[in-house]
Structure formats: structure tokens, C-alpha cells
Design a protein around this nucleic acid. Sequence first.
DNA 1: ATGTAC
Length: 476
Amino acid sequence: MDINRFTKVSDTAWRLEPQGAMRVPAVIYADEALLADMDDKVAEQASNVAMLPGIVQASYAMPDAHWGYGFPIGGVAAFDAEQGGVVSAGGVGFDVSCGVRTLLTGLDHRAIEAVQPRLADALFAGIPAGLGSTGQIHLRDQQMTDMLRGGAAWAVERSFGQPEDLERIEERGQMAGADPEAVSQQARKRQRNEMGTLGSGNHYLEVQHITRVFDPDVAAAFGLAEGQVVVSIHCGSRGLGHQIGTEFLREMAIAAQGHGIDLPDRELACAPIHSEIGQRYLGAMRAAINCALANRQILTHLAREVFAEVLPDANLRLLYDVSHNTCKTERHVVDGRDRELYVHRKGATRAFGPGHPDLPEALRGVGQPVLIGGSMGTASYILVGTNEGERLSFNSACHGAGRAMSRHQATRQWRGRALVDELAARGILIRSPSLRGVAGEAPGAYKDVSRVVQASHDAGLARLVARVEPMVCIKG
DNA sequence: ATGTAC
């Protein structure tokens, strides 16, 4: 990307002034090298998003942004329903409410080393992973409806986890406004046997140890210390979210014309928030959020069962669970006015700062944990939200390393077996049903996550708290 | 990301 196209706002913020049909500027957060390496498509797509009706303040791209369907992955855009604002299925993404949760274990990394292969095998046996993977849970239609309304709270009621887990989940584990009736039979059918499964691609369950603390005070408040072990789960709403995304993209593409919305790119299919289809999408999307929250909750229960077996001293307590593919109704101050906005985050993590009323009491004073999953075999990071993040990006930060090349390209360039062996030699045990899948997730196919989080930190989107590195990775 | 396509 030619960085001379941008107005340089700071070392980590670059602005494209509105031109043509753009209603607001497009802003990319990245350091100069990340920006230069970024695909031209990111600027083009962020500019296209800036043309949509009712967009507020600016269209944003995070430091890990890359080309996506319509909206860039790593994109953030907020819309005001009272100003003709829209909701877009492509602005959320196919994997609705894909996200990360991190659990404290109370264990030191030496405790893992003693049982590492056994733990890896037991987790692999206990955690269904891979494309089309199914679990032990089979939902009848009424149970599906209850799950779509109840989210993680539904899972806890069914003894998957503990009531105190809910405190540490976005929306307290249950997204309000879900409309199970708006979820098609086909979406329900696809999900019937997929609760408590990881899925494929970049999804994983990792046992990690903390290798660096950047902010001792916040780390202490989060319960993190160097040498300690945590478990992180990265996955989403599986087939159900994908089916909802597919159906509404199609329907919105047709509906946009009827609503008189002139799309710069047909992939930006959207509908007015105040429209029948807009409301129906929001209801279905919120039901998919509950599906993802329930899924991560069940996976947590499965992980606890394995740890109880292999490392009975472990006490897996939830630090936090946060999504990075959503459209959420939030209040933000824009132009000095407190407004209700529909914030699309597609590959961007919500990052509320200290004092935010939606945070649980135990975290309110310090801010929201911002959980950033790295690529396979590399570090992941825990950050904390800031208050300046509100005016910078509606409280949003990066979501991961961000792809540097396509899966297809990666599978031609790397061999899964060789990657697994190389990582094992470095003390990182990978277990996956698909060596081809592993090749597609080669660390070299991703940007450097440490640069991405540093840019997020420098830009003020979120602040670095701790780095973790993998010991065991169950890969989808 | 995903029963890699109606």
C-alpha cells in the first residue's frame, strides 16, 4: 500500500479524507511498516464502508486488517439508526461471534511439562475439533430455541460450567434481543450436533504459559503472573452462524435496491436498521452470538473435565470471554453527544476502558481484558481496554495476527507434518485431525502478532498487559 | 469461517 495516500495523524494512525461518495473519513491504525505491507484492498474496502448510509465518525481498520467479504476483516463501523443507519451481515462476518476466552488454571508451567504429552492427548480426545466435527450433545428443536435465547447461561443451567463463569462473559453470557424464530431450519439443522466443538481453520484450544508481563498492576488485577498457565479457547458459532451469514447476505443484496441504497460494492449488502429485514437479521445474529457463547461455555466444561483427570490440582477460572465478530448496540459519545449506535466489529475486539458500566465489578476499575489470539505456535497477548479507545475506534482493538496469505497459498508452501515436528522440537505439542489444516495455519502465513499488538498499544486502542506462549494446541 | 457450489 502506498502510504502517501494518507494523512498521517500519528505514528500509528492514518486517515483517508472523504472523497467521492464517502460520508466520513477512513482511518487505519497501524505502524508504517504494517501499513506499507497492507493490501490496497483494505483502504478500498474501508473507504467503501465509509459510503454506507448513517455511518458515524469514521470507518476504521485495525492493525491486523486484511481483505474480507465486503468489509475488511479488522474493520469497525458504527451506524446511527436515527440517521438512516444500516446493519450489514458482511460487516459482522460469517463466523458470527467468533471470539476468545481465557481461563486461569492456578498452575505453574512446570506442572504442565511433567504431563505435557498426556495432557495433549487427553485434550485431543475430549475436545471435538475439525471441519464438520460433532459432539456428544444433540439438540432437539425446542432445546435449540432455548440455547439460542439463553447462550452461556443456558449451558450453565445444563451443568456445563459454573454460575460465576457468567460474570466474566460479555453480556453476562446471554445476549439480549435474540430472536430464535429468525434462525432458519437449515441453520438449526447444521448446528444440531455441533455444540461443544471447535471447528476448523484458526480455531483452537491452547494451554499457554505467561512469558512476559508488561503491566504488573493490571496483570495482578487479572490474576496473571509470569510462569503461570492459562487455557485459551478460540472459536465461534460453527455452522449456525455461517448459515445465517449466507442467508442474510443473499437476502440483503436483494433488499438493498428496494431500500434505495446505492452500494459501491455488492458485497456490502446491508439493510436499514429500521427495516423488517434489518431487525430480523439483528435477532438472528444475536441468537448466533448466544450459540457461540454456549459453545465456548461447553468447551470450557470439557476442558475442565480433562484437567480434572490429568491435573487434578488445576482450578480453571474464567478471566474473560470476548467476541470479535459482532454488531452490538452501544452508547458512545460522538461530537459531544451520547448516542446509541450499532457498532459492527468484524475481526475487531471490543475493548472497554476502566469504569465502563457493562464490565463486571471485579474488572470495572481496571478495564476489560482484550484477548488477542496469535497464529499457531506463536505468542498470544492479553491487553486491557482504554478510555481514549472510545473516540479512537468506538472501543475496538485488533483481534489477532491477521492473515498475510491465503489458506490455499499456505497449504502449497508448507507441510503439516513438518510444522508439527518443528513445533514439537520447540516444546509445543500440536494435535489436529487435519495435517492439511495445520499447513493452512502455518505461522508464516500470518503477520507478526507482536507488531500488531504493539501498534494497537501505541495507537491507544488497548494497552499491553501480558504475553503468553503455547505449550499444547488442539487445532481444528 | 463453512456440510469448500443450486
